[in-house]
Amino acid sequence: MSVLAQPPAAQAHRGLLARAWDSDIGYSFRTSPVAIGAAAITLVIVLATVFAEFITPQNPFDAAALNLMDGFTPPGEAGAGSGMYFGLGADSQGRDMYSAILYGSRVSLLIGTASVIFSLVLGVSLGLIAGYIGGRIEALIMRIADIQLSFPAILVALLVFGIARGLIHPSLHEQMTFAVMTIAIGLSNWAQYARTVRASTLVEKRKEYVDAARVIGLRAFPVMIKHVLPNVAGPILVIATINLALAVLEEATLSFLGVGMPPTQPSLGTLIRIGQQFLFSGEWWILLFPSLALVTIALSINLFGDWLRDALNPKLR
């Protein structure tokens, strides 16, 4: 019977990685220098921020480790106080810029990732419910999404941030900033997931495999999770990747505006805000290096997302 269908059988038993490497997407990756470059840079940055403790000379968040005498040391020189070597210079507090950038990137990426997960879970759930259940629930969810999309994301985030500040006791503000930022950025981005997932769900739920699951008595929730969700996941992945870059930028914007991370645990945006005060007094490195880091992170994630979108879209192949 299956003499003719033999070749795929051999394939099925190979490892997941080997098959991914050999798949169409794997091939598209191997032959795209931009994708390889973007992925490599992203990977290096992520690894560097994760292991920042081991590759930086000081902990920039620890006020005790700083020496005020090192303040404004230019790049490539030794500090006047500690005699430490500052490859990317030091800021007004004598903080090593290289260390500050890695720790700051870590904060930025953490907030970005957490807010993407938050908006993804929220948007995907609402989109699945809207598409699968339909009717009034769908109309309600999608109109809220429309309203949300008609405001600029940064405005929504500012609004949420403001409300949260008002609700939380001032003594908790600094501790809660991370969570508040995550929710504020997350809430400003969920609508795109909801729309995409709803559209794909409308297509998938008409397919007969959904009927087949309903025939054996599966209720709406298991059908959505076990059958529909895996089949609408492709576009979600693309949006999530591109949104990660946007969320990092959004976090930087909020921090730059002074409503984000406090200077005691600075993110890239906070570093840039601090740095721009010194631009005209000649200490250019305090602004330039965090800005370059931000651009590199956003660009490489974005380029990777662009490639992923093209690779997953069969029409372009």
Binding site: K207, E208, Y209, D211, A212, A213, H227, N231
Partner: peptide, 14 residues
């Protein structure tokens, strides 16, 4: 039980 028309749509591809 039910058997459907389109065998390309009636099996969950994932």
């Amino acid at each position: 039980q039910m058997i459907f028309q389109d065998p390309f749509a009636s099996l969950n591809p994932r």
